[in-house]
Simulated assay, not measured.
Amino acid sequence: MMDTVAVNGEVRRLEELRLQDFLQSFFFGAGFFETFLVEEGAPMFLERHLARLRSSLTAHANCVHAPPPEVLTAGAVREALRRCLEADAHLGPRFTGVGKLVAGDGRLLLSFRALAPQHERTLREGCVLDEVEDRGYRRGDSSLNHKSVSYLRQYAHLGRGTVFVNEAGELCEVPNGNLFFLVRDMVVTPPLEAPCLPGVIRSVLLEQGRLGGLPVVERALTRARLEDVRGCFLTNSVSLVLAVPRLLGHVLTGSSEWAGDARGVVREYARREG
């Protein structure tokens, strides 16, 4: 994490933050976060991230102390981001990296980090998914529709090529993203009740409705139907779209082409939304 942050729009140094200002988030996981790509100083899909953050805060208003509404607007976050970048020479107005918003304890914390060293290589080579975790996800668990700071279940599997599967054998998501499968004559992504996170890039592709001439739909996919999958990619707000060249032992030669098409759609949406 970089040294410069903002708390409710006020630019601060990381070492100035006090634990007592984040007690509910730290001790009970009573908060939510959003991670987004910043390119040349511009946050990507910021309005969508803030809409999801506000939705989670509203759904848990009885147990999470939300920040003031005025700091949860796109204008306020853009201004806080701009002042952070200008205040820190290691960031600078043309910063490209990752921004993170954490909401809880009546505060909105904005922080920054560099892209992972393997970021460009992963974009080129994709991500192999060959491990299954089927003990923690249960169909209809709505807690997993929110990006809570209680993130240990996902964090413990980062970088391990894990697919979370529910008790019915349905593929749900990966620790850091949503899944899309090319199945016969459609592109399928698991429904929210699988459960999975309502990802920002996922929402873009569902709004687009078609990819490579095929419909994009929400539909459950079980491990028993993996033989029907011809391609796969995962989406998240930092890498945007990553090809999955191998899924649970199945080599998928078509993944790169479909991931490229999806990335083009996402980039076009980002350009239009500013």
Rank of each mutant, 00 (worst) to 15 (best):
H157K: 12
G136W: 04
L123Y: 11
L129C: 01
Y151E: 01
Y137D: 00
N145A: 06
S148T: 12
Y155S: 14
G140Y: 02
G126V: 10
L129H: 00
E131D: 04
A168I: 02
L144G: 13
R160M: 05
F164M: 14
S150N: 12
L129T: 00
R160I: 00
E133Y: 12
R153P: 07
A156W: 09
F164L: 15
E125P: 04
E125T: 05
A156C: 08
Y151R: 07
E167G: 15
S150Y: 08
H157R: 14
L123Q: 15
G159R: 04
V165F: 02
G140Q: 03
Y151N: 07
H146K: 07
G126E: 09
E167I: 07
T162H: 04
D141S: 12
V128T: 11
R124E: 07
T122Y: 09
E133L: 12
L152I: 08
V149S: 04
G136C: 04
F164H: 10
N145Q: 06
K147M: 02
L144D: 02
R135Y: 09
R139K: 14
S148N: 09
H157S: 09
A156S: 13
N145M: 05
L152G: 14
E131Y: 13
V132Q: 05
G140K: 02
T162D: 04
D130L: 07
T122C: 06
G126C: 10
D134T: 01
G169F: 04
S148P: 13
E133N: 05
E133T: 02
V128I: 10
V149A: 03
D134A: 14
K147V: 01
L158G: 07
K147W: 00
E131M: 07
V165S: 01
Y151S: 07
E167K: 15
G161K: 09
Y155F: 07
D141F: 15
F164Y: 14
R121V: 08
V149W: 00
G161N: 06
V165E: 01
H157T: 00
R121F: 10
F164K: 11
V163L: 15
V165D: 00
R138W: 01
A168Y: 10
L144N: 12
R124A: 15
R139S: 06
R135A: 09
S142P: 06
D130R: 11
E120R: 15
C127Q: 11
Y151M: 01
Y155I: 09
R135G: 05
C127N: 06
A168E: 14
E125Q: 05
S142V: 15
Q154G: 09
R139G: 06
K147R: 09
G169C: 09
C127V: 09
E125D: 08
E167L: 13
S150M: 06
